[in-house]
Design a protein around this nucleic acid. Structure first.
Lengths: 139, 139
DNA sequence: ACTAAATGATACTAATATGGTATCTTTTTA
DNA sequence: TAAAAAGATACCATATTAGTATCATTTAGT
């Protein structure tokens, strides 16, 4: 199965943000992150721009500029990042679609898949950037 | 998010097998399923051949032939079908891969994603074809 | 034996998502 | 005013998903 819960851009975002959380004193230019984390530069730039647009980062243009967290690491959750890059977490569409399923509201499969999805959401919502750093002093 | 837990072929397989489970007296030719379920014929044929190869269906060639369940509906689980069409359920690779994560074995994120994956597997393993039919007399 | 109705096998195609590149513009500071 | 940064945007490569097309083989019934 290739369908991932976390795609590459979300992955890179987590790494970059973790690194920034550890070194929070600095305004971080993309080039430094690229050097430290070995992430392809143009791709990471796109990711950082996205995080800026979504309000998770603040950007400083011009020489000496870069990015800084605009939200505390204990208020950034995996669900937030997944939503930024992958859209709303939605793992299922009712398997018995209209015309075929006579009673979509009582479809037992849909209910059970929804329950799984709710669990996943709850879990991902409980994983903050901060909690990822607690036991790992370095990335 | 486009990453699905259940892809189209698995979806169609569930529908076809449910229909067959309800009409279990018959040897079911693909054309009848196509007519009933409005699934694209060549695609469904491929799906049925796959289920046959994996031992979930038995096939009867020649005129009057078709497919029949070779496993009881209460012994066919969603995980089985997902595995047939999507391979082993695996929703994550450690987000901090080698070279970057210094301590892959204690990575708290990996542990938590693994826990989510285990839960999903357990749930999907508990959903049998039979259990999908219980509350729906027709598909 | 012949034909129609079925599956087996397999190769091809189209659409979409993912994982990037490349390039040009704008802003800021030294 | 030049260098170093981000902003914007268009493009490209690859993989996966979803589906088609075709020909060969098997079998039942006449």
């Amino acid at each position: 199965m290739k369908g991932k819960l976390i795609t590459r851009d979300t992955d890179y975002a987590v790494r970059a943000l973790c690194f920034m959380a550890i070194n929070e004193e600095e305004i971080m230019p993309v080039d430094k992150l690229v050097e430290e984390l070995k992430i392809p530069r143009p791709f990471l730039r796109k990711i950082m721009q996205m995080l800026n647009k979504k309000g998770i980062l603040h950007s400083y243009k011009g020489k000496g500029g870069g990015f800084a967290l605009s939200v505390s690491p204990d208020r950034i959750f995996l669900t937030d990042l997944i939503e930024v890059f992958q859209g709303p977490l939605k793992l299922n569409e009712c398997i018995f679609k209209k015309n075929i399923c006579p009673n979509i509201n009582t479809c037992p499969l849909k209910k059970r898949i929804d329950k799984i999805e709710d669990y996943i959401k709850t879990q991902l919502q409980s994983i903050s950037l901060h909690s990822l750093l607690e036991k790992n002093s370095k990335i």
